[in-house]
Design a protein around this nucleic acid. Structure first.
Lengths: 232, 232
DNA sequence: ATGAGTCAAATTGTATACAATCTAGAGTAC
DNA sequence: GTACTCTAGATTGTATACAATTTGACTCAT
């Protein structure tokens, strides 16, 4: 099976390296490459039909982004996050997102039109009969990133994006749980209400509940169902 | 003037790219390359006497680390942080470090030997007549990273390191201020005391004071002295 | 003088060849 | 059977050549 980079979703990239990064990220997120799956430069060159230079750049990028791990002289492998590491990612996320809502509750709400758009999207998605876990997870991520964006700190947003991108893999598990989407929607509205009311402590608490519920779902799901693929 | 990568501090690196990254980082931090100074692959190849491959990798790394900015088809340039961006970095740092002390105050103090070592180092440095700003800034950074390490979250530590490394440039300004070292030392001891007493709110407050004082010093210094080099 | 068009230089993107290093397995001595 | 050595293969690191793109200045027509 020979892939071509051009197939990749129809999106255009400025160079081969960026395109390869996007392709591999997509595959890793969708579990098409299992954890610990090895990737070598030569193999990818052949599959994508490109030279080592762009492949090499792409692998380095993915390694620094935490999608791959580098094994000296043995190539790269899809990084397998253990239970503890996932918890750590959630903790950093919590720290940053609590700060976001604190800022917003203190010095003014996010832009009304953005928030309204999010509310509408949630409503549409919940009414649909076929709710894909991935769509829900992406919408959830979008909500949190919209808040971060509204806080107006680009550096904060960048760090949060890096973490959320990596957690997307596990958040899909989160939304696999029954009625999780409805609960999340409810929690999001609560967060917005508290921010609007400039209730700093309340907003922090609402955000903490939202994030920790997700974390607990992932926590439980991993222990239950994924013990085979992911050995702790 | 032809540099050789081997000169670089005597440290050994596994490959040329890592060595170039370290060299350039060092120079940027010491203002040997002014903000907006342009760096092209070809120029660095000639200076270091190596080929484009490792130089290219190094430049990409420095760009993603926030030391350089990439200008499409115009090479790279030393990133000039404006006032607002520095404030943003300090905010993210604050969010993460508040979380660190909160964790520590809640679930147990850092290791005693590490803390004692820090205390001793502070004492030595304060007694020396020649206090270099850079040494003080590095010790300050070390203190904060030791706390983060004690919190036991590797992901958190990585994000914090990235921010602190970038802020080192400005923290040297911070310690240029008279008696700042003594004040910082005092504040650090206060933080440790509150953590030991499991006083969460007190520890957060002490940390916030410490960080915001530094931020204000940098804030003022930049407005005063650096308006020439750094145009806002 | 001003604007469009053109071309050389600068710069990055990609391919490929070669060098250095490490891994793992086969083979051999004991 | 076990441990040791040596070697072939795998893999990354580095150098270099070539292609593609963009920039900026120069020319020429208006």
């Amino acid at each position: 099976m020979v892939d071509t980079v051009e197939q990749m979703g129809g999106k255009q990239f400025s160079n081969l390296s960026a395109s390869i990064v996007a392709t591999l990220k997509e595959r890793i997120i969708h579990w098409q490459y299992p954890p610990e799956h090895r990737l070598t430069e030569a193999e990818l060159c052949q599959k994508f039909g490109v030279s080592r230079s762009p492949v090499r750049e792409a692998l380095r990028t993915l390694a620094t982004d935490g999608f791959l791990k580098k094994m000296p002289n043995r190539g790269y492998a899809v990084k397998q996050y253990n239970f503890h590491e996932i918890e750590e990612l959630y903790e950093v996320r919590l720290a940053l997102e609590l700060y976001v809502v604190e800022c917003l509750a203190k010095r003014g709400a996010p832009k009304k039109d953005e928030i309204d758009a999010l509310k509408r999207t949630w409503t549409c998605l919940l009414n649909e009969s076929s709710k894909k876990d991935e769509d829900l997870a992406r919408l959830d991520t979008l909500f949190h990133e919209t808040l971060a964006h509204a806080a107006g700190n680009k550096s904060l947003l960048r760090h949060l994006r890096a973490i959320n991108e990596r957690l997307l893999l596990f958040r899909m598990i989160d939304f696999g749980k029954a009625h999780r989407a409805e609960r999340t929607c409810h929690q999001h509205l609560e967060i917005l209400k508290r921010i609007a009311a400039k209730d700093v402590a309340g907003a922090r608490k609402a955000m903490q509940q939202n994030i920790e519920e997700g974390r607990n779902n992932v926590h439980a799901a991993i222990k239950d169902a994924l013990a085979r693929a992911y050995s702790f």
